[in-house]
Design a protein around this nucleic acid. Structure first.
Lengths: 97, 97
DNA sequence: TCACCACTTTCCATGTCGGAAAGAGTGACC
DNA sequence: GGTCACTCTTTCCGACATGGAAAGTGGTGA
């Protein structure tokens, strides 16, 4: 088991973003609408949180036209995975792993 | 391993309060000053967070005069332990246990 | 061109947060 | 009794985060 350096990350910690990261951590990619439904927030709220994750360099947004419909898919970047893993490690440390 | 029902708790989730709960979860009691130093916040900030935990019924505040000094010790209540455990379970669920 | 879809952005009202500083309660000391 | 020190508490404040509603944007098809 590789030890990740525990590191608290406020961008990741906010509930909706923690959920987004948690979802993206176990898949290569997930569609915007799917994430929105899983997290249970509105379009605008998810869009704003995704923007923050994107600006932090944690999430990559990929827009594509699929089946003649605009589809946005999200994925964790390497930095995002690192930050998420480090934050989870910190949560475990705090909560007594 | 008893399964605690995962339940997100905003009162517990805030970083300083999560740390306080994490500390109190592994001891019977801890002094205010010790918690303050461990968490790394000022008196006023800790006082305010403790108040929130107290009002939620999660932390019990016990004031005593020890060695001719006022000493306040904190401890988790049963409700506090339940809420903390449930929140930790929810964090594990979100972050992929 | 117009309607539509899938987000984005703006606007706004509310809530939270921490720092600084004043306040309060208790015991010690003279 | 009065003053001081210690240990929190409370108040005041500005900064920032958050979500809902609604308007806006860009691409697509009729």
């Amino acid at each position: 088991m590789t030890a990740v350096e525990p590191r608290f990350d406020a961008v990741v910690h906010a509930p909706p973003r923690l959920q987004v990261c948690g979802l993206l951590a176990v898949v290569d990619t997930m569609e915007f609408a799917t994430v929105r439904d899983q997290v249970g927030v509105s379009d605008s709220v998810l869009s704003k949180h995704v923007k923050q994750l994107e600006e932090a360099g944690y999430v990559q947004v990929h827009k594509a036209t699929r089946a003649s419909r605009q589809r946005t898919s999200l994925s964790l970047t390497a930095a995002g995975r690192t930050a998420f893993d480090a934050h989870v490690a910190e949560l475990r440390r705090i909560t007594g792993g």
